[in-house]
């Protein structure tokens, strides 16, 4: 049920960014909301569910963006894996790290897409435009926290029937070294599958 809800949410975000955002003035930019959801899945969802959802979103993006089939599933899964691996070692799931994490991941993905496309099609002229990219990064940074709040709220609603998010909340940190509450068994990682 939770996965289905996030699946529907991802489709809605995709529809929003392909229909409503292009109708808005250019200076607002075109924020990649689905990408924020992918980062959220990498941080909060169990590995298998998150990976399957990420793969599905990649396949959807392939249909509505670009011409190289298979580019987005691979890119999304690479970002998902990298964020997962980092999250296992560092406490980057806290609210304070959400913005830098989303920005850095987006920059990483775009660099790989640019290099990959340039290598796949050396005859084509792709221009790396810093102003466009910076505008997108800025908008992503602004959107990251409210969207994480909504996603966390939804996740908490499905998991426990109550909101899970708390600003800079150490109690719900993904830091595996955090002290567990009395009477609770310490967990290695919130994403592990029990």
């Amino acid at each position: 049920m939770r996965s289905l809800c996030f699946l529907g949410l991802g489709v809605l975000l995709l529809v929003t960014q392909t229909t409503i955002f292009p109708a808005l003035p250019a200076w607002i930019g075109k924020p990649d909301l689905l990408f924020i959801l992918v980062i959220f899945l990498a941080l909060r969802m169990p590995v298998f569910q998150g990976a399957v959802l990420t793969l599905f979103f990649g396949l959807l993006m392939d249909i509505f963006s670009g011409i190289f089939l298979g580019l987005y599933p691979v890119m999304y899964l690479v970002v998902f894996t990298v964020v997962q691996l980092i999250a296992r070692q560092l406490a980057i799931g806290d609210a304070a790290y959400q913005i830098p994490l989303v920005v850095a991941s987006y920059l990483f993905m775009n660099s790989v897409v640019f290099m990959g496309t340039t290598m796949l099609e050396p005859d084509e002229i792709m221009h790396w435009s810093w102003p466009d990219l910076l505008l997108r990064l800025l908008i992503l940074a602004v959107m990251a926290m409210p969207l994480f709040f909504i996603f966390d709220w939804l996740m908490g609603w499905f998991d426990q029937g109550r909101p899970r998010w708390s600003p800079f909340g150490a109690a719900r940190s993904v830091n595996r070294f955090a002290t567990p509450a009395r009477g609770r068994r310490p967990t290695a990682h919130p994403n592990r599958e029990d």
Partner: peptide, 13 residues
């Protein structure tokens, strides 16, 4: 009915 959301490609649906 839809436009490419990416920075690198220009396609429409």
């Amino acid at each position: 009915v839809g436009r490419d959301p990416s920075q690198w490609f220009n396609t429409v649906i």
